[in-house]
Design a protein around this nucleic acid. Structure first.
Length: 718
RNA sequence: GGACCGGUAGCUCAGCUGGAUAGAGCAGCUGCCUUCUAAGCAGCAGGUCAUUGGUUCGAAUCCAAUCCGGUUCACCA
């Protein structure tokens, strides 16, 4: 039973509401009573009081002066007086600074809060609200192991699910596995051609990595085979192609060789070369210097070189740059067409067709290799502490959606073009026309998602369906929701895209071509071993068993990594700096874990009976500043949790957990004339000892719960 | 070109439903372990909140324009 059900004669109305909500409610009443205005709690603006003033919360009264017809100071005074008179249990005193009404919350409020909440190991948990929500996240492809980008997705999805649960939602964690398609066939084909029967068992390699290696192998063969085709095309030899493609290539080739265009592109190439050469003379950080030259910043140079940089910059005109870009695009098109003509790509495509036709041999290989991957994923998920309630597989869902398209066609939501392809016109909504079914009747990506959205809804009838997917798919989900709404699907309005920014490395995006992709398993291993290294250096847990140590290192290493990825607002792209991510000082997971361990060590000084006896104790003396401050911050957890749920943002929780831990550390270390001001064990009297034990216990519980919402465990000792 | 997102300290980020003198962490510099865990604490230094205009008693926050960076507008997924 949550502590909230405990009735408390004097303060019962407040126990159901946060302090801030109570103040807003009371202030609204005051405004109604004093000025006969239909003000609601939601109209009141309450801030935490700046530390230099007396009080904990501040009401901004400027908005009331319109109808109070008094100066801000007088208005604030009138409301303060009314509040102190009518809500003495809440407002013990107030002071006015300009239009700011600073309220001192009654100490009794804080002491009864800490009494009721301190032993609740489930702080913040809201009662069920009767709403069901599905969170789809992770959604890996089965041709490659997980990488850093997946980690942000996994941690976000898991954390948001936990946050919603704590807010009273029933949550279904779903994982839609992309287990079919050309990319899987690439791995399969390369395995057939080059593996000589290797398996995870025979090689000792984790299944997902083994399959990923063959995918990479495929890509390198593909590159080798495409190269000569590309060269031939560039020479005007289209013998590798047939029909329409030849015509397309003739056009591309012609465009590339238009004299003026060609001259511009060649000029651009030469200028780039010269700029790079010049940059190299200035600094080893050639890339940075080049980008400064391009921006018209010549600060790296002096005298003649500066003039040279300037003139190079000027020669690289917008027209030349534009042609350069066009040329890049044409080259990409040629490359794509050539890659598709390679022998190995043709084989992969045949394999995909065989898979779709249900060819037993291909299906068997597919089953086998996927099972290797699942075994690998299973290990990774388990280590990460990530779980799911429902697995969907694209091999089961990729044909869905066609019937919905048929319905939409009948309803007139979609229309057919001459080639039989089916489209929806979204131009009225500021978007474009979108293809939903190819001319040959086959699905595209969105067709599948339309069908899967219906399937999910049929399975669970949830109120909301959240997709944790990177922000490069913002347009896709906008379109998906719009289409579902136009179809009148009951699931439509509940569709929400939890869009998150890409994880970048200090030197830019991860690129598989450049081998800068950070593997998830490798990263975890490095975080854990770094945690071990730090822990050993400090030597505080020498009495731990092997098993206990292993678990502690996992807790700290994973805690550092999860916290690092979750502390940033999801919608923003973030930079993953490996050095900072394994840091254990400052705004990090280990800092908070350490604070928790420290509190636990205080509590260990006392017997279970001492701690149990706290439940019936309510402090009656005045509170010292940091005592009040800590209780206040603990009390804000409920509001923070609600906000994190509203915003679907674990970073709100991360910031809060850090603030709480930091505040406790200040409380813990505060020293006056050689003595700890807030010592628990050596408190000035028994009452203070009990109060501080309650505060310590409450803080440990809140920290543990907050971290749990981030998927991070906290140790008893570290 | 259209749409969307971002630009806050040297770096990484909070703050953005308008409120008091814009905050953390890291990096730099000072101090603090005979003491409930120094993975800590206290302090110093560091800012034209991209720019310009507007709304307002009040703007980092809202509006408009501009500049810079990113994503996207595929019969790929």
């Amino acid at each position: 039973m949550p502590f909230r059900t405990v009735t408390f004669a004097l303060y019962h109305q407040l126990i159901f509401m946060s302090v801030v909500a109570s103040i807003k409610q009371a202030a609204a009443e005051a405004v109604q009573a004093l000025y006969q205005q239909p003000f609601t709690a939601a109209d009141v603006s309450v801030n935490t009081t700046k530390p230099e003033f007396e009080g904990e919360y501040t009401i901004v009264v400027f908005p009331f002066t319109k109808f109070s017809r008094q100066k801000p100071e007088e208005t604030a005074g009138a409301i303060g007086t009314w509040l102190a008179e009518h809500h003495p249990a809440l407002v013990a005193g107030f002071n006015v600074v300009k239009g700011f009404l600073n309220l001192s919350v009654h100490d009794q409020f804080w002491t009864s809060f800490v009494q009721n909440a301190h032993h609740n190991t489930n702080v913040g948990q809201q009662p069920a609200n009767g709403k069901k929500v599905m969170v789809e996240y992770s959604s890996p492809n089965t041709n490659k192991p997980l990488h850093l980008g997946h980690l942000r997705n996994n941690f976000l999805g898991f954390s948001v699910s936990e946050i919603l649960k704590a807010n009273g939602f029933e949550v279904v964690k779903a994982n839609l596995v992309n287990d079919r398609g050309i990319h899987i066939c690439k791995s399969m084909l390369a395995w057939q051609l080059f593996a000589h029967g290797d398996t995870p068992e025979s090689t000792g390699k984790k299944g997902d990595h083994l399959v990923g290696d063959y995918y990479v192998h495929f890509e390198s063969i593909l590159r080798d085979q495409a190269e000569p085709i590309i060269s031939r095309v560039l020479e005007g030899n289209f013998g590798d192609f047939e029909g329409e493609q030849v015509e397309k290539l003739i056009k591309l080739h012609a465009a590339l060789n238009k004299p003026e265009f060609k001259a511009n592109v060649e000029k651009a190439e030469k200028l780039r070369h010269d700029i790079k050469a010049l940059a190299r003379t200035a600094s080893a950080e050639t890339k940075e210097v080049v980008s400064r030259i391009e921006k018209g910043d010549f600060s790296d140079f002096e005298g003649e070189d500066k003039a040279r940089a300037k003139s190079l910059h000027q020669e690289l005109t917008p027209a030349i740059k534009s042609d350069e870009e066009k040329a890049d695009k044409i080259h990409d098109d040629i490359k794509e067409l050539s890659r598709n003509r390679t022998e190995i790509m043709q084989q992969a495509k045949i394999m995909l067709q065989q898979w779709e036709a249900g060819n037993p041999e291909v299906r068997a290989l597919w089953q086998t290799m996927n099972s290797w991957v699942y075994e690998g994923f299973e290990k990774t998920y388990k280590r990460l502490g990530i779980d799911f309630d429902k697995m969907y597989f694209e091999s089961n869902t990729y044909l869905l959606g066609k019937d919905v398209v048929e319905e939409g066609l009948r309803k007139g939501v979609f229309f057919k073009k001459a080639d039989n392809s089916v489209w929806i016109d979204l131009t009225a909504d500021g978007l474009d026309e979108k293809l939903v079914l190819r001319g040959d009747g086959t699905s595209v990506y969105i067709t599948q998602d339309i069908g899967t959205a219906r399937l999910k809804y049929d399975d669970y009838h949830m109120d909301q369906s959240i997709y944790v997917v990177a922000d490069e798919q913002n347009y896709h989900f906008k379109v998906l929701k719009l289409i579902m709404q136009k179809l009148g699907e009951p699931s439509a309005d509940g569709i929400a895209h939890l869009s998150y920014g890409m994880v970048e490395l200090p030197h830019g995006r991860m690129k598989s071509r450049e081998g800068t992709v950070v593997d998830a398993d490798d990263l975890v291993e490095e975080m854990v071993s770094t945690a071990a290294k730090y822990t050993e250096e400090l030597g505080k847990v020498k009495d731990f068993t092997e098993e206990e140590l292993r678990e502690l290192y996992e807790t700290i290493g994973l805690g550092a990594m999860k916290f690092f990825l979750l502390k940033v607002d999801p919608k923003k792209k973030m930079v993953f700096n490996p050095e900072e991510s394994i840091d254990i000082h400052g705004f990090t997971g280990p800092f908070i874990q350490y604070s928790h361990a420290r509190i636990r060590s205080i509590l260990r000084e006392f017997s279970a009976e001492d701690l149990a006896a706290l439940a019936s104790y309510r402090h009656n003396d005045a509170l010292l500043p940091m005592e009040k401050e800590l209780i206040k911050i603990n009390e804000q957890f409920g509001e923070v949790l609600a906000e994190a749920g509203r915003e679907m943002s674990p970073s709100v929780i991360a910031n809060y957990a850090f603030l709480l831990a930091q505040t406790f550390n200040s409380f813990y270390a505060k020293k006056e004339s050689g003595k700890y001001t807030y010592s628990v064990r050596d408190a000035e009297n028994e009452d203070k000892r009990k109060l501080r034990l309650q505060i310590a216990s409450l803080t440990a519980n809140t920290i543990r719960q907050a971290m749990k919402l981030l998927g991070i465990r906290v140790p008893e000792r570290m």
